[in-house]
Design a protein around this nucleic acid. Structure first.
Length: 432
DNA sequence: TCTGGGGTCCTAGGACCC
DNA sequence: TCTGGGGTCCTAGGACCC
């Protein structure tokens, strides 16, 4: 959600516009298949498992987000719903075009997701609405994607405004939510789950203390909320009041982890089958990582049973393994993944899903034999701190050295560093 | 027998997002 | 038979240190 300012500090941005593509995946398909226009269209998830996007016409037919296809296949046919498998390469490409267009309107932009961006709309003053309408028209003209625009003094309210732009045809796809009374009116009509950051669990817990609408949340005592629900929810309270706590995050941070996982088409019971799956995920994840010039210092393998099969004994487990060497080597990572799998696998279960997650990602270096040769007793976080310090000292693509002298509480002293290459931290310390 | 308190680090899991 | 995949951040609690 971006960098947080201390709430109440002078925020840099006064007016946030949230631009959100309407039914993005369905709209992308329509750009290249105009015959889909005006038709009910749904896009299915990876294994054609469930519905992940719907055109307005499909929504009007009552088709729910997440609806399992196998349960609705016949119904879709009867209703004349057009079904497409997802094509993420296409969507990524279309997304880039949309974002490029948005930059024409405000260089201060945060790409929040594949189909959303926050823009600073400061300085437009009375032209705010005409700018927003111009933006909408231009994006549609240049990319073929319809978007909605919500404008408000905080990101959280901009989300609400965007929702109003979508739900309210009279808005023409642009909704400006500045007036305090209007904010209260709107928040009083919505459900807690309509607020960005609040889903089912939190909504239920808020109900327990008598908060049932976003308006009541806005009016709640912020200290009480912080005590009871934590700092994240307190921020939401302030944001709902129009007090900006979430700044525009224009520089995307470095990726911290990546995952490769799949649900199996059927239940898997043997270790051998799991080994094959995990090997595949490990190499897929490694390829993804190498494409981004990264290396990993630890990984997690996870397996789980099918939560929808209530009659089955449920089991879910994961195991974190630290690599002795930060690596982007497929063989090494696959081997570690299989070791990890052995630790979590239990016989006599019907497994439905497994995956490999690569953590502690660092830029890979020019040094071919990059070594973070620390013993396993050193935590991955300490290791990462040391690597960061070394990167800062030498420049991030220069050199990374062994770190077996780094203790969990110890700091890395600059005088211990030396621009030489060694796999032995003790030797290095002497050289330095 | 009595037996602090605060800080940091780490992990697992929860909760949310799209 | 068949219910996605990929992310981030926060918290609670234990271990450990001084």
């Amino acid at each position: 959600m971006g960098r947080h300012l201390p709430c109440g500090a002078d925020a840099l941005t006064e007016y946030f516009a949230l631009v959100d593509c309407n039914n993005f995946y369905a709209s992308c398909e329509r750009v290249f298949q105009p015959k889909l226009r005006g038709q009910p269209v749904v896009i299915l998830s990876n294994n054609d498992g469930c519905v992940i996007a719907r055109s307005n016409e499909a929504k009007a037919l009552g088709i729910e987000m997440g609806a399992p296809w196998h349960q609705h296949k016949k119904q879709f046919e009867e209703l004349g719903v057009i079904v497409r498998s997802s094509n993420y390469t296409l969507y990524g490409d279309m997304s880039a075009r949309v974002m490029k267009t948005l930059r024409q309107f405000s260089p201060n932009l945060e790409v929040y997701s594949i189909d959303e961006a926050f823009l600073s709309f400061d300085g437009f003053d009375s032209r705010m609405e005409s700018q927003a309408r111009d933006l909408r028209a231009t994006v549609y003209q240049w990319t073929g994607i319809p978007v909605s625009v919500g404008i408000a003094p905080t990101k959280t309210l901009a989300k609400i405004a965007n929702r109003a732009a979508k739900k309210n045809p009279a808005s023409g796809g642009v909704y400006i939510l500045m007036d305090s009374t209007e904010q209260e009116d709107l928040l009083g009509q919505l459900k807690l789950e309509d607020v960005w950051g609040i889903a089912r669990r939190l909504s239920r817990r808020l109900n327990e203390v008598g908060i049932t609408t976003p308006l009541e949340l806005r009016q709640a005592d912020a200290h009480f909320i912080r005590e009871r629900f934590g700092v994240v929810i307190e921020r939401i309270v302030l944001e709902l009041r129009g007090q900006s706590c979430l700044e525009l995050d224009e520089v995307p941070s470095n990726r911290k982890s990546l995952v490769s996982s799949r649900s199996f088409g059927r239940s898997v019971t043997t270790l051998q089958e799991l080994r094959e799956a995990v090997s595949t995920y490990a190499s897929r994840a490694t390829e993804k990582m190498r494409r981004q010039n990264l290396a990993t210092a630890s990984l997690i393998v996870f397996v789980e049973t099918n939560p929808f099969r209530k009659q089955d004994k449920q089991y879910k487990a994961s195991q974190n393994i630290r690599l002795p060497l930060a690596s982007s080597d497929t063989g090494r990572i696959t081997a570690a993944s299989l070791t990890s799998l052995e630790a979590v696998w239990k016989p006599n279960h019907n497994y439905k899903k497994a995956g490999v997650m690569l953590l502690d990602l660092v830029p890979s270096t020019k040094v071919a034999s990059t070594l973070f040769d620390a013993p396993d007793s050193i935590s991955s976080q300490s290791r990462m701190k040391a690597i960061d310090a070394i990167n800062r000292h030498f420049g991030r693509d220069t050199v990374i050295l062994g770190s077996s002298r780094i203790k969990p509480k110890g700091t890395l002293r600059r005088e211990m560093l030396s621009p030489c290459y060694s796999t032995d931290w003790n030797k290095l310390a002497r050289v330095g």
